[in-house]
Design a protein around this nucleic acid. Structure first.
Lengths: 171, 171
DNA sequence: CGTGAAAAACCGGGCGT
DNA sequence: ACGCCCGGTTTTTCACG
């Protein structure tokens, strides 16, 4: 289910375009990758079926919706055993401030990316939702000054079709 | 440009739906939020113009495109001055393995989320693209075991902060 | 918020390798 | 058979009133 899939150069072009703008019309997309619209539609459908494309999501400006303060929380969970870990993750994911959770190697077991309204809410999050729990051994909090997204996620050395341009976005 | 925007409850519903699936047709979306399609289209356009919705991006399974090994790199940049920092970020963003870069408070100045083909490539990334640079004082590498995305990013619960007005209940 | 023209998506069948 | 392309039909979009 998570096995690598064989992707033609055309597929890579499609992925590149759709990662840039998931609402690109099939007609435009077909033109961009040099395919007939129907064929293009077929290939996109296949990319979805095979799970290469897992979804398409509108990106929302956190500050614009009243959550201007983002942070990363490094959390050590003790004991580090599966039942506790799963429960802990469930708890985190139920919080509206959570943007993403990562289970990592290293001294801190979890990394939680959060978006909050204020320092006060961030404090509440740390104190009431994390350190108050028995399995949370410690929490380190680091604010986000600025963030950047990388370009489209593509296979290694994916024959960069001639003229392939990678566009980067800032914030 | 990064100021909070007034959002009606309907706007919030729209954001919730589009964050779940950015390709929801306007007709469907209108039905879901209880609006006429034309009105709904207007609302979405406004959300784009005001920068609340900044884009829509297809999500690709990293493992399926041959990048099964993800990691976070914690990087200390010295001296921590703007010209060096900007140059450093530019360098990172030009690397195909980079998924996101965060400038943080704390002992480690930068956090880079990367997706690689193998431990060997990750090593190359750390040695050749990071520690080999003069401004990079140190790098800590942590692998990602598993990751979870949070739900839709929405304003703090309760009533929308400012700009909330009582709206006609007509239909 | 409704309407209508333009455009796009969709779903068959047909052709060439 | 397979992948690709061409049509017509249905759905959606979008600028009006």
């Amino acid at each position: 289910m998570t096995e690598p899939i064989e992707l033609s150069p055309v597929d890579l072009e499609i992925l590149r375009v759709l990662q840039n703008d998931a609402r690109t019309s099939n007609k435009e997309l077909a033109a961009a990758v040099g395919l007939a619209p129907s064929t293009c539609l077929d290939r996109v459908a296949r990319l979805r079926e095979t799970g290469v494309i897992t979804g398409q999501h509108a990106k929302v400006d956190a500050a614009k919706v009243g959550r201007p303060l983002e942070a990363f929380l490094f959390v050590q969970v003790r004991p580090h055993r599966r039942p506790l870990v799963e429960q802990f993750v469930e708890h985190l994911l139920a919080l509206p401030e959570i943007r993403a959770v990562y289970h990592l190697t290293g001294p801190d077991d979890f990394l939680a990316h959060v978006a909050t309204t204020s320092a006060a809410e961030l404090q509440r999050l740390v104190l009431d939702e994390l350190t108050s729990r028995d399995e949370v051994a410690r929490v380190h909090t680091n604010l986000v000054f600025q963030q950047w997204q990388g370009g489209p996620l593509l296979p290694p050395d994916g024959e960069p079709a001639q003229g392939a341009r990678i566009r980067r976005r800032g914030r």
